[in-house]
Design a binder for these strands. Structure first.
Lengths: 212, 212
DNA sequence: TAGATTGTTAATCGATTAACAATC
DNA sequence: TAGATTGTTAATCGATTAACAATC
């Protein structure tokens, strides 16, 4: 189990990447990996890898390295990847549909059980095996299914109202693809923002930087 | 113009957000904004805001604050938002289509001029006003159109080959939605990664943290 | 002038890197 | 045993915050 103390936010940001690489290494049939080898894949240093792992227990072996299986499982536990929180998607546009399919396909961390849209043309259509419902049905559905997380793929202008309605029926975590600042509105809510346009602007900046 | 020196990577990460907020503030008709007010929106401190702006010139006014228009334009210049790099999308699946529409719609930084897919069913279909081409046409198209950036929305397994082909016809920057590590393959290439599944795992972690 | 707010330096905090004894 | 590699402490580096004189 390990100590699981003092996991700093920069370590947390790296955990999903560690997990992905360990899965890859596992697939390659490698049983033990050194901090040096992991550092290469992470584009980091052996020192940092050891420092990172140190904060949640010691399970490396001097002279040998880390057990891939054990390390992978430990990170799986820390991230809580095996949980299945009931989640709904609000907004079945381009991005919403793409995201829904990915979440359904990966089938990890979250179970997508409902999709909502306000466009009458979309109601009763399907994403995977899920039938799209009208946003009017959010309240009864989320209440009776104890929905934990909402994926917000609607325009910024619609998020204020919809997030309030989701909050009122107990949703306390959001995967937010809009630029609406949910933390400004709610204090006791977990928000993970995905700002694609910010990412694109940073790419632009870096291209400009090298071109001048 | 300002000094434009020592822009640290953490400042760069914040610039797109500054830009978005300044655009919002501009829309609200506010002409001047204080570091304190901006800090509130950024969920940061007045001190940091001033420190951030300090590294690319001084254009605040003591007792008054920053000119929204001027600051917005300056950040626009630094990020290079007004440029129009010719870009192509490779992979017209769910995410690819969603991303393409967003880039076309925003019409900022990049001009999407070509979309490629290997699925014969998709060829000649349209995304916006762009006709989907077969991936075989990547080389002639990118060469004759001096394509600068490629948006990669294909599975990890396909990226190795496709990125090499794009590189060979001069593409040196990538907006990468796969988990393939392009920096491992190419040294002199700009890569902006979007790892949606990492984001989802972090959300999962944070939910678990509060639930225990 | 008095109040507000900047620009900038100094102090603090946290994260990364280096070093090395412990040990497989 | 000798070589490899961890766990952990100390040193360094960078980023954030505090403070305050300058000035609108």
């Amino acid at each position: 189990m390990g100590k699981r103390e003092n996991i700093s936010s920069s370590v947390i940001r790296r955990l999903p990447r560690y997990y992905r690489f360990l899965r890859d290494i596992d697939k390659e049939g490698i049983t033990h990996v050194s901090s040096n080898e992991l550092a290469k894949r992470m584009r980091s240093t052996a020192s940092q890898v050891r420092q990172d792992f140190n904060c949640f227990g010691e399970f490396g072996q001097q002279g040998i390295g880390y057990s891939v299986k054990q390390l992978r499982e430990e990170i799986e536990n820390i991230l809580g990847i095996k949980c299945h929180y009931p989640a709904v998607l609000v907004g079945a546009g381009n991005i919403g549909t793409a995201i829904a399919n990915q979440v359904i396909f990966e089938n990890r961390c979250f179970d997508l059980i409902g999709v909502f849209d306000k466009d009458p043309m979309k109601i009763d259509k399907k994403i995977g095996s899920i039938t799209i419902m009208h946003t009017d049905e959010i309240e009864p559905f989320c209440t009776s299914n104890s929905v934990v997380t909402a994926i917000l793929c609607v325009p910024k202008s619609a998020v204020e109202e919809l997030s309030q309605r989701l909050y009122d029926v107990g949703v306390r975590s959001f995967w937010n693809f809009s630029h609406y600042d949910l933390n400004m509105k709610f204090k006791n809510v977990i928000v993970e923002n995905v700002h694609l346009s910010d990412s694109l602007m940073q790419l632009c900046f870096r291209i400009n930087q090298t071109h001048s």
